[in-house]
Computed example of a mutant assay.
Amino acid sequence: MPKAVAILPVVFAIYFPIAWHLESSYKPQEPGILRPPFAHFAGNAYLRYRASVGSKGDTSAEPERARLQLFEDGKPLGPAHTAPQDVSQLGAGRFAYFQVGEDRPALVFSTSDNSDPNTNGRTYRINDPSARDPYEEQRRR
Rank of each mutant, 00 (worst) to 15 (best):
Q69E: 15
Y46T: 15
S112L: 04
T119A: 10
A96N: 06
I14E: 07
F41K: 01
Y15H: 05
N44H: 02
Q89P: 06
E62V: 12
V108F: 04
G121R: 12
S60N: 15
F109G: 06
E102M: 10
I18K: 10
F12N: 05
R125L: 03
R65V: 08
E72P: 03
E64V: 11
D86W: 13
E72G: 01
T111P: 00
E23Q: 06
D58S: 10
S88I: 01
D128T: 09
P79S: 05
G74F: 02
A80Y: 07
A61V: 05
R104L: 14
F12H: 04
P31G: 10
A45H: 03
A19H: 11
F38E: 00
R122P: 08
L70I: 02
N44G: 02
R65Q: 15
S55H: 01
I14T: 09
E64M: 15
H81R: 02
A83K: 10
Y97P: 07
Q85K: 13
S52M: 08
V87S: 01
K75A: 03
G101A: 09
G93N: 01
P117Q: 03
L47E: 06
K75T: 03
D73L: 01
D128P: 12
A19T: 11
V108T: 06
Q99N: 09
E23V: 05
N114Y: 11
R94K: 10
A96M: 02
R35H: 14
L77C: 08
P76T: 00
G93E: 00
Q99A: 13
D86T: 13
R125V: 01
S88C: 04
S115I: 07
V108L: 03
G32D: 12
G43N: 12
E64H: 14
E72L: 02
S115R: 00
D113M: 08
A92E: 12
L34S: 03
I18D: 06
P28W: 14
T119M: 13
N120R: 05
S88N: 00
S25E: 10
R65Y: 15
W20C: 15
A83G: 05
E30H: 08
G57I: 00
F41E: 00
A92S: 11
D103F: 04
S24N: 11
P76G: 01
A42P: 05
N118T: 07
A61K: 04
L107I: 02
V100I: 12
N118V: 13
D113I: 14
N120M: 09
R35E: 08
Q69R: 15
A96D: 11
N127G: 07
T123G: 00
T82L: 08
N127Q: 14
S55M: 02
A39S: 14
A19E: 06
R104D: 13
E64S: 12
A42C: 12
S110G: 00
V53F: 10
N114K: 09
A13F: 10
P36A: 09
T59D: 15
A45I: 08
D58K: 09
L22Y: 15
A42W: 14
V108D: 02
A83T: 09
G54H: 06
D128F: 04
G93I: 00
N114I: 15
D86V: 14
